[in-house]
């Protein structure tokens, strides 16, 4: 198996405050990998190291086998970095911004012109190439922001929360674009706070907290290992359902009640039986698939992380 990214025991501190404490993970080439974590968990620091912006204090990072410490220039040719903030020159047109970034990536002449046309088509802005970026909506700017990282045909795209604060249409367009990139063999490292994005796009993921990976693997592996299965019951009169002592206490959620259990099928059958015996009218009774958000909050806690 070939890996696009191999990270081993990375550590990084800012003024004696540890941002990374031995983080490690591997990303399969051609896959989409989600990097999740609360604010300050170490996601952006990890991405900046992988993009060549920061040097780790300790540990190893390899991109397509190239060590970041010794082959940074080679790595830069293979990586496209989409930062969290929109870093474009607002007064310049989309095309002028792309000309500039293309030249910074070493693409020139007719090839650059061709690539600009292609990436503008990819991000759905071919007809707005001549317009100043300052006239664009937030979603359009985000798409140009991504386009600027694609010009040199990178084998790895690192995206740091690329869908923050944009409209559903732009977000959907970005998802489609990422899927298309992945189909063409590009590896995507994707950081986000939106769990549903990871669930719908990523093949594997790592949940990071306090500078370490606390859970990782394919989506299924993580859910199997950390996701508790559950049964959902909602009565027509809205009252609390009868308790099932052997399964523990049900908790109110979304107008009904949810019961977490390792044996959801048995619990579902028992609850159905009790409701039938007591002639309770059931509105909904179903097994619930554990959500990634639930797993995330279970692992990282619900305490606010403002820093």
């Amino acid at each position: 198996m070939s890996y696009a990214i191999e990270v081993e025991q990375l550590t990084k501190s800012y003024e004696n405050k540890a941002a990374l404490r031995g983080i490690g993970f591997k990303v399969e080439a051609g896959s989409c990998f989600g990097l999740l974590g609360p604010n300050g968990a170490g996601k952006s620091t990890t991405m900046k190291i992988l993009s060549g912006l920061l040097e780790p204090d300790q540990g190893k990072a390899r991109i397509f086998g190239n060590d970041l410490g010794t082959a940074a220039n080679e790595v830069r040719k293979q990586v496209g970095y989409v930062p969290q903030s929109i870093t474009l020159y607002e007064k310049l047109s989309a095309a002028d911004n792309l000309v500039f970034f293309g030249e910074m990536y070493g693409v020139k002449g007719k090839e650059l012109k061709r690539r600009i046309d292609e990436v503008l088509e990819q991000v759905g802005l071919a007809d707005r190439a001549k317009d100043a970026v300052e006239k664009f909506s937030g979603g359009m700017k985000r798409r140009v922001n991504i386009a600027a990282a694609l010009l040199h045909r990178p084998k790895l795209i690192i995206m740091d929360e690329p869908t923050v604060g944009i409209d559903p249409q732009s977000r959907n367009h970005i998802f489609e674009m990422i899927r298309s990139l992945q189909q063409s063999g590009v590896t995507v490292l994707y950081s986000t706070h939106y769990m549903e994005e990871v669930e719908s796009m990523c093949d594997s993921l790592a949940i990071v907290d306090n500078g370490q990976v606390i859970a990782g693997g394919t989506l299924g592996e993580v859910m199997d290992r950390f996701g508790t299965q559950a049964v959902y019951l909602e009565l027509q009169d809205g009252k609390a359902p009868p308790a099932l002592a052997e399964y523990g206490k049900a908790e109110a959620k979304d107008g009904g009640w949810i019961l977490e259990t390792a044996t959801p099928l048995d619990a579902l059958a028992d609850w159905a039986e009790v409701c039938k015996e007591r002639s309770l009218k059931v509105k909904r009774l179903e097994m619930v698939r554990p959500s990634l958000e639930h797993v995330f909050l279970t692992l990282t806690g619900t305490t606010l992380r403002d820093n």
């Binding site: 912006l53 830069r76 040719k77 020159y89 910074m104 070493g106």
Partner: peptide
Amino acid sequence: TTGMTARLRTTRM
């Protein structure tokens, strides 16, 4: 301050 310098550092510049 906008992160442009940092972004450019990820290119071959």
